[in-house]
Amino acid sequence: MTPIPDNVHGAILISIIDFVLSFVIISGIGVVLAILPVVNRYWAIDDKDLKGGH
């Protein structure tokens, strides 16, 4: 990987890449969260069963 130059141009470059990538990754997490309720169709866990503990 080409090193980012240690100057203002490098700072702007790193900021743009980081800001845009942050949106992409967090959108990915959002998509994962959006499909998470699908699991409820296949399995349900009752709190009462868990609260008994060991």
């Binding site: 980081d18 800001f19 942050s22 967090i26």
Partner: peptide, 19 residues
């Protein structure tokens, strides 16, 4: 899940301070 975008959007300050 829509609101997770705000978790990235509210970080512009990181880059302003960095520059």
């Amino acid at each position: 899940p829509k609101l997770v975008l705000l978790g990235a959007g509210a970080h512009l300050g990181i880059f302003v301070a960095l520059i």
